[in-house]
Computed example of a mutant assay.
Amino acid sequence: MRPLKNTLFVQTQGAWLNKQGENVVMNIDYEVKGRVPIHKLEAIVCFGQVSISPALMAHCTDNGITITHLNQYGKFQARVEGAVSGNVLLRREQYRIADDLERTQMICHSIVLGKVHNQRQVIRRYLRDYKQQLDESTVDCLHAAQKRLENGLNKILTAENLPNLLGREGEMASTYFSVFPNFIRNSDYRFPKRTRNPPTDAVNALLSFSYTLMTHDYRSALETVGLDPACGFFHQLRPGRPSLALDLVEEFRPIVDRFVLSLINKRQLSKSDFKTEENGAVWLKDDARQTFFKAWHDRKQQTIYHDWFEETVPFGLLPHLQATIMARHIRGDIDAYIPFLWK
């Protein structure tokens, strides 16, 4: 049970939340495990098997405290709120921004800056951890790519319009993936280039699968804070496409890449765990997904420091925190969307 900027996240399975006086109390097997003042909350987010007493639910609906239920893996299930909700006003402002090129571009700048910064951090961390094991030409290549990404951050700041910004984002992605094969230290895997729809090798299959899971997490997080996951700013609007979720995934792609590289380099998955279709598409086999999901679950439990919230939080809560920041920017509480910058 963790309060973050007026949102209470409850991840303990079997928890029972109830109201005692002016507090939300969490019980596990009839024993009190946590207590938070109700007046400090604007939302409660429950993951998995978390129950709420009727009295607490009534208090929340009467006082504008939104209750959101997600499954244990973070998939959105339901939201409980009272008759009066600010979500309609929040979404109306979201749609207004989507029609305002100047405001849209400001958000897109933040998203792309976060992505390129985190791509650079992947290279920096690899050089920090393995520089002594690399030959001189590889080290020079990685340093050159890192420098191009640093210069790219300045180019992004001076992009005059969205097409120009998209072009520079594509240029930085090309630079990043050109050195990506250097990060793979398992000889069973090869990465010729980034391919999607469908992925044509095991590395791309893992990347695409991981990005899809992160997109699902972001979709749930955006639903939780009351935003429309389909109305994005960086990705074009299409029926059935969670464009805003895809927007916010961008800055996390490099962090997800590190997770995939860990699976590969630690040999948690082997070549036999993948299947190739007649059209050349490569997918992770059903049995191997259990190994993947266990590693993904373990990664989401690991902690990471979030500068804006000034707290160390589980990795799995990052989508909810970034969705909260986006909602606060759209609502006008903060001047800009603040991306998550990996250190």
Rank of each mutant, 00 (worst) to 15 (best):
A230E: 10
F259R: 09
T224K: 01
Q268Y: 10
P242T: 04
F274I: 12
S272D: 11
G280W: 04
W283N: 15
I255G: 09
R253L: 04
P242M: 03
R253A: 05
D287W: 10
A288S: 09
W296H: 11
L284I: 07
K266N: 14
S243R: 02
R289Q: 11
L244E: 02
T291N: 12
F293K: 14
S272F: 11
D286C: 14
P229Q: 02
A230S: 12
F293L: 15
N279P: 08
T291E: 11
L227K: 01
L244I: 05
D228M: 02
F292A: 10
K275W: 08
P242S: 05
I264A: 09
V260W: 02
Q290H: 12
D257L: 07
E277Q: 14
L269F: 02
G232R: 03
W296Y: 12
A230R: 11
L227P: 00
V260Q: 06
E251Q: 10
F252W: 08
L227W: 02
G226H: 01
A281I: 09
K285V: 11
I255H: 04
E250R: 11
A245Y: 00
E223G: 07
Q236L: 10
V260P: 03
L284Y: 03
V282M: 10
S262M: 14
S243D: 01
E251I: 06
L237Y: 05
Q290E: 14
W283D: 15
V225P: 03
E278A: 15
T276R: 14
P242H: 03
G226P: 00
R241G: 07
I264H: 06
E251D: 08
W296D: 08
K271M: 15
T276A: 15
S270Q: 14
L244Q: 04
P239H: 05
V249Y: 00
V249F: 03
L284T: 06
E250T: 10
R258W: 08
Q290I: 12
R289C: 09
F292E: 08
S272C: 13
I264G: 08
K271R: 14
V260A: 10
Q236T: 11
F293W: 13
